[in-house]
Structures are given as C-alpha cells and as structure tokens.
C-alpha cells in the first residue's frame, strides 16, 4: 500500500473505529483504563493497518482492542501483586472494575459465566457483531463461534432462571419486554 493511501485510508476509518472502540472499552473497563487502552489500540491499529487491508476494519480493531485491554489488565495485576508484596497488604480487590449494569439479575448472571462465554455474549449483543465478525475478533473459526455462542446463551438463560428462582420475584424476560 502506498504510504499516502495508507494514511488517507486510516484517517477515513479512524472516526468510526475510535467511536466503536470507545464503546467497546466503556463496556469492559473503568474510564481511565479505557482512555489508555484506546490510545494504545490506535497505535497498534496504525502500525499494523496493512493487516486490516483485506477484511472489515471494525472486527479487526475490536480484536486489537481486546488484546490491548488484556495487556493493560495483566500489567495492572502485576503492579498490584508487587505493591501487595512490598506493603504486605492484600492485593487490590477489584483489578479493573467492569461498569455496573442497570439490570442486577443480568449482571449477576453474566458475572457467573466463564469469561469466554460472557465475552461472546457481549460481542453478540453489545457490539452487535455477526458470527463471522466475532470470529475475527477472537481469532477462532465462525463455526466455533456458532457452537460456543449457542452454549453461552443457554448458560446465561440457565443463570437468569436460577437467579429468578432463588430471589423468588416475578420479573422475567417476557415481562420486562417493552
């Protein structure tokens, strides 16, 4: 790719990518981390923009953001452990607090799922990606996405049912539909 073309193409897609990645991060981490990771994600996207030339930019950018966020959380955990060791304190309770959801039952159900399952559901419902796009984000086959997403949905429904049964209140997905 000609360097000027490359720059122009990047500048053309950047506003969309920035918006989308900001939302992606707002759903998964605290605002300060989100800011850092957004900048880092853009840097990586720009550096590796040629990788995105063949396919859709957005799922690819989500994939980059996901790895950058994982990196940020890893280094923060490392810092936390180090601090804890130095001060002989407990490590910080919450490493990177995910934003609270307005729907408590749903939040509890999501939190009880395995991280992979929860991430699949988020990509599906929040980023509103198709199976093939989720596959790009996670670096797995669309087929695997299809199977795992199906399972994740079932598990989420099970958790929601469990939560409702134990709380003993009436609210159901059916009743809360607009």
């Amino acid at each position: 790719m000609n360097p000027d073309d490359r720059r122009q193409r990047f500048e053309a897609v950047a506003p969309t990518v920035i918006d989308a990645v900001r939302r992606f991060l707002a759903r998964r981490t605290d605002p300060a981390t989100a800011d850092d990771v957004l900048q880092e994600t853009l840097l990586v996207c720009w550096r590796r923009f040629d990788d995105a030339a063949t396919g859709e930019v957005l799922p690819w950018a989500y994939g980059v953001a996901r790895l950058c966020l994982a990196n940020a959380e890893r280094s923060r955990r490392r810092q936390g452990r180090l601090l804890a060791r130095i001060r002989q304190l407990d490590p910080p309770r919450s490493v990177s607090p995910a934003p609270g959801l307005p729907d408590d039952d749903l939040a509890a159900a999501l939190a009880s799922l395995r991280a992979d399952d929860a991430e699949l559901l988020r990509l599906w419902a929040w980023e509103e990606l198709a199976l093939s796009q989720i596959a790009v984000v996670l670096g797995i086959s669309a087929n695997a996405v299809s199977i795992r997403l199906h399972r994740a949905k079932r598990r989420l429904r099970d958790e929601l049912r469990k939560g409702e049964a134990s709380a003993g209140h009436e609210e159901s997905t059916e009743g809360s539909r607009p």
């Binding site: 707002a26 749903l106 419902a125």
Partner: peptide, 12 residues
C-alpha cells in the same frame, strides 16, 4: 429476548 435484555443493559 436475550439479546434485547442484554442490549438494554448496555453500559455504553
């Protein structure tokens, strides 16, 4: 239904 419920809880 599931997607709608998740969608409504979207923190972003």
């Amino acid at each position: 239904d599931l997607r709608t419920r998740l969608h409504r809880a979207d923190p972003a």
